[in-house]
Every structure is written in structure tokens, then in C-alpha cells.
Write a protein that binds this DNA or RNA. Structure first.
Length: 479
RNA sequence: GGCUCCUUCGUCUAGUGGUCCAGGACGUCUGGUUCUCAUCCAGAAAAUCGCGGGUUCGACUCCCGCAGGAGUCACCA
């Protein structure tokens, strides 16, 4: 049997990291089995619809590398893939239920329902509409909601993550199939769509676990074998025990992208939050995830979201890309992350800067703050020099002399190249009798006035003879 | 309140009756790599396996009870 999975978001805003996992797992399962992933937009709630949200969702998926086989943009033979365009299909299926006496029009005024609802809440009783089911429902016509006529009984089913499930008749109710505006509810629409689209594995958050018996009842009334059900545990907010939501500052995937998180790291982190292959591996490529993914190894308790670990993983991925594909591979991803001042500089120079700074990056946006002095002369800050813990014991004239000596030695260099520079620096240590910490700190600060920088010889090399000497001179004269 | 699910270091997790006085990773701390920051390397601290009973020669692992947490009970998905 061909595996067909789907990701079915509502276009109500951006996808935040609490939700993407329900796109990642279906993707992995589909790819692993050479099946299909369907993207379906569940836009039946016109009030919550947000303009542009669909595009945002598509962008997010594309960025993460989660391509879909059927859905918006790519099309497919089971369309349309927007629920709002499938109204007549739902109505056809609804007619089947009406014909078999399993659905009825509900003329109950909303005040009556609300009153009963309130009553149930006060008495701490579950709200069950079937208790006030109208006795002689009218014929169904637009403007009246259509309800499922349930037959309370016990259900047992198997959830691929949670295992064997059993519930009693008390959870079954006459749920709304078609709203009074003519659009179906999620409860009905997803069943129709999954069936029509041939979905074999329904993967969604655990919050749907409690309504599963009601879905099972509809499948049964429709004479359909339900697909495999996969409940995904929640991702928990960093604080408390609540599921991660926008209120907890759950950022959109797009935001992480803008902050310089790599798609590979994001995918790796999210896939492994609540899933592991039982080995001690931490870094997974998309291909490895596709190969190793398994439903049985999805965790069945919620997992807390930990941004620190994401950052660590991102650093690992930044280095992995450089080590495996070279600096220019990483450089291609950095375009929007350089400081303003880098604008006029060519690719070659920026690649050289990147090659000496990349192992310090946690996110690509660190480039903005960490490479400033490679592109514009830093502001001279003499207190930074004189207050430095290695330099404060020297007098100003001593510092000046050390700098002058450094300048003259470096000026003699024929080839301005890292190894030669290191040799000269070593010579200077011998000549001056200073400790590396002392001399090197002085030079480093005079060049960058930054809290940190790469190895001194590399910094000098990339900065170039002219710039380096000019900056050292400037500081020497300012002391 | 009903129903359902969940419960191993701070966090993500390994663990399917003995090889676990519980392993890995993040984080934390310490030390090393000619300055800084980071990387990398080495090491340390960190879980009476939610609690209480049982079964067993032996339980994190099986059974029962309890507690705590979460989800759900919408013309939202």
C-alpha cells in the first residue's frame, strides 16, 4: 500500500515552531516509503482567515526543504486543495449521511444551546448535545447546521504513537458536520478529504485524540475504513507545562530564518524533539532522517522546547557545512547577514572574513556584530587598551613603543601572509620579552577595538598590510 | 466535574526482568589549545527512574492503587 500523508494547516497566521513538526513527520514518513505528501489548506473558518497566511505556510515548508507532491502550486489529481473550494464535495457526502438517517438538520436556537452549555459547565457535566436532540428535525436546507446522529457505544482503536485506546459511549456526541454558513467543520471536512485523497496516515497533534471516537463513528456510518492514526505529542513552552503557543513567544519559523538559523539545523532540532532513533547520534541530515524515521520511536509525552540546544545545533551545522562543502557553500547562505559596512566589499574578501570567523558563529546574524571591524575602521577607544587586564600594568609610552616596534617589524615583511605574520609576531615576543597575552592583546585591540577576534595572524592577513599598519599607526599616534 | 493520555539528571533522551550503585547530548563548572571570544579536547557535578504496594531469587523495566501534570468536552481547527 502506498503511503499518503498530509499536512493540513489553517491559514490563520504564520506556522510557529510548535506546529511545524506536524509537517515534518508526515514528510519524513512519505519520503521514506516513496509515498506522497499532500498539502491541504483548511480554510473553512472564514472569520479566522488571514490574508497571505497560505503563502507564509508555503514559504516555510519550502525553506525547510519539505516539498509536497499534491497541493497548492503543484496541483494534483485530488484537488482542489483549499477546503473552501470543496463545498459541493462535502455536501455530497453529507447527503449520504442524511439518506442513511445518520445526519439531521438542527433547528435548535443558539440561545437554547448556550443555556444548556452553561448549565453543563456549572454542574461540571460534559456538554452532550445528543441529550437535547430535537425530536422531529426539519428537512436540511442552507442556513441550518447539519449534525451527525451518533449511536453511543464503546470504541477501541490503535494509535501508532499512543498504542491501544479505549473509550466509552459517554464521549460520543452529535457533532456539527456542516455549519449554518454552509461550510463543513474540521471534524467532517478532514474525514471527507482524507478519504477522497487516499490519505493512509493521519498525523496530527494529541489534542485530537479525545475527538477520535467521534471521527470513528463517522467513518463507520460512512462505511469507510479509517486511516492509521498518529497522535503527535505537544511541544511544551520553555516555562510551565503548557503546550508551546504564540503567547509563550513561540516564534515563526521565518523569524528563526531571519535570525540566521539554518534550515538544516531547524529541521534536525525539531525532528529530534520527541523522536530519536535509539542511537547516540545528534546531527542528522534530511536524508538520514528520512531513512531512520519510525513512528514507533515517536515519544508519547510532550517535549520541552529548548532554544539553547537549537543554537548549539545551528553552530554544529555551520561548521559541518564548511567542513564538508567548503566556506563558499556557507557563504552562499550569508547574503543578508553582513553588516551595513560590508556593502562595498567583494565576495572574495567576505569569504576570507567568513573563513576565519565561521567557527565562532552560533547564528548567521552573528556576522553583523562580529565582523564590523573588517569593513570599517573601528573607533579608537583608549580606555579599552589601558584598562585591559594584561595591559594596565604598562605605561602609555611603553605601549606606544611596543606598537612602534611592531609596526616597523611588520613593515619589513615581504609577503603579508599568515605564516610569515606568525613568525614575525613570534620574533617580536623574543625581542620585547613580553608574554603573548601582553603583546598580542595590544595588537589585537589596536586593530579591532572589539571584545574578541580570530587568531591574530589571520586577522592581520585578512585585514591586509595597508589597513593593518594604518590602524596600528593611528593608535600609536593617539596614545 | 466526566473522559483520555502522560510521568528516567535542570532540559532532550537511552533503557522492553539481571550486562544500570542508570548511558548519551544540551546547559553548568574545571583544566588544556601562544592574547580575546569561539571551536576543539579532557574531566567533574547532576536522576533514591512521580509515590505506595505487590509478583519475582532479582524491577526503571510486569501487575494494582494513588498522586501530579496535560489534553478534551465549540456552528476553531
Amino acid at each position: 500500500m502506498k503511503v499518503i500523508t498530509r499536512f493540513a494547516p489553517s491559514p490563520t497566521g504564520y506556522i510557529h515552531i510548535g506546529n511545524v513538526r506536524s509537517a515534518i513527520y508526515p514528510y519524513l514518513l512519505a519520503r521514506q516509503n516513496h509515498g506522497k505528501l499532500i498539502l491541504r489548506i483548511e480554510d473553512t473558518d472564514r472569520e479566522r482567515f488571514v490574508e497571505g497566511a497560505t503563502e507564509l505556510i508555503e514559504d516555510t515548508l519550502k525553506w525547510l526543504g519539505l516539498d509536497w507532491d499534491e497541493g497548492p502550486i503543484v496541483g494534483g489529481s485530488h484537488g482542489p486543495y483549499f477546503q473552501s473550494e470543496r463545498k459541493s464535495i462535502y455536501h455530497q457526502w453529507a447527503q449520504k449521511l442524511i439518506a442513511s438517517g445518520r445526519a439531521y438538520a438542527d433547528p435548535t436556537p443558539s440561545e437554547v444551546i448556550e443555556k444548556y452549555h452553561k448549565e453543563c459547565n456549572e454542574k461540571k457535566m460534559p456538554f452532550l448535545f445528543r441529550n437535547i436532540r430535537p425530536e422531529n428535525p426539519p428537512e436540511w436546507k442552507p442556513g441550518i447546521p447539519l449534525r451527525f446522529k451518533t449511536e453511543p457505544k464503546s470504541y477501541t482503536w490503535y494509535d501508532e504513537v499512543m498504542g491501544k485506546m479505549t473509550t466509552g459511549p459517554e464521549v460520543l456526541d452529535d457533532i456539527i458536520l456542516i455549519k449554518k454558513d454552509g461550510f463543513p467543520t474540521y471534524n467532517f471536512a478532514h474525514i471527507v478529504d482524507d478519504t477522497e485523497m487516499g490519505v493512509t496516515h493521519v498525523m496530527r497533534g494529541v489534542e485530537y485524540l479525545s475527538s477520535t471516537p467521534n471521527y470513528l463513528a463517522i467513518y463507520e456510518a460512512l462505511n469507510i475504513t479509517p486511516p492509521k492514526l498518529v497522535s503527535l505529542p505537544h511541544i511544551l513552552a520553555p516555562q510551565g507545562n503548557k503546550k508551546l503557543g504564540k503567547r509563550d513567544g513561540a516564534k515563526s519559523v521565518t523569524e528563526y530564518r531571519a535570525e540566521g538559523i539554518l534550515a538544516e539545523a531547524m529541521l534536525n532540532y525539531l525532528a529530534c524533539l520527541g523522536w530519536n532513533d535509539g542511537t547516540e547520534q545528534e546531527i542528522y541530515t534530511k536524508e538520514e532522517l528520512i531513512n531512520k524515521f519510525s513512528l514507533e520511536r515517536i515519544q508519547n509525552s510532550g517535549a520541552r522546547y529548548d532554544e539553547i540546544k537549537l543554537l548549539w545545533l545551528n553552530g554544529q551545522w555551520i561548521r559541518k557545512i564548511v567542513h564538508e562543502d567548503g566556506v563558499s557553500a556557507l557563504y552562499r547562505r550569508t547574503e543578508s547577514f553582513w553588516p551595513e559596512s560590508a556593502k562595498g566589499y567583494d565576495d572574495q574578501y567576505k569569504i576570507r572574513v567568513l573563513s576565519i570567523i565561521y567557527d565562532r558563529l552560533k547564528t548567521l546574524s552573528d556576522l553583523r556584530t562580529m565582523t564590523e571591524y573588517f569593513f570599517s575602521d573601528p573607533k579608537i577607544n583608549l580606555t579599552m587598551l589601558t584598562q585591559n587586564k594584561f595591559l594596565q600594568k604598562f605605561s602609555e609610552s611603553e605601549l606606544e613603543n611596543l606598537l612602534k616596534l611592531t609596526i616597523s617589524k611588520l613593515s619589513e615583511l615581504e609577503k603579508w601572509e599568515a605564516n610569515n605574520l606568525q613568525n614575525t609576531l613570534n620574533e617580536l615576543l623574543v625581542i620585547t620579552g613580553k608574554k603573548p597575552a601582553e603583546l598580542f592583546s595590544l595588537i589585537r585591540i589596536a586593530l579591532s577595538y572589539a571584545p574578541f577576534s580570530p587568531a591574530l595572524n589571520l586577522t592581520l592577513e585578512v585585514l591586509g598590510r595597508e589597513t593593518s599598519l594604518a590602524r596600528l599607526n593611528l593608535t600609536a599616534r593617539s596614545i
